[in-house]
Amino acid sequence: MKVSRGDVEHIMKLAYLDLKGEEKEKMIHHFSRILEYFAKLQELDTANVEPLSHVIEESTPLRDDEVGEGLSQEDVLGMAPDKEGGYIKVPRIV
């Protein structure tokens, strides 16, 4: 299965990656090879197989509604690349 240049560009958009030049060509090449490799799965008839998303078949645990300790504003802003007045600052959105 060959992947089209357009497909790869669309995926780049969805994934917020901006590959260019040689890196992009290499990606297209490897992408196609990997998809060919995946084609092996089509040999199997899985029409009547239940997909397995969780290997543990229990109900998710529930937590009591009690307030616990969190992080301070200092902790949060200490990690942030840019900040202003208690907020994390990000560049122009539109």
Partner: peptide, 19 residues
């Protein structure tokens, strides 16, 4: 999904948060 309080109205920004 975490034990942070929900009463955010009027709070200082980024003070009721956790990992």
């Amino acid at each position: 999904f975490c034990s942070c309080p929900t009463d955010y109205v009027g709070r200082e920004p980024n003070t009721i948060v956790c990992p």
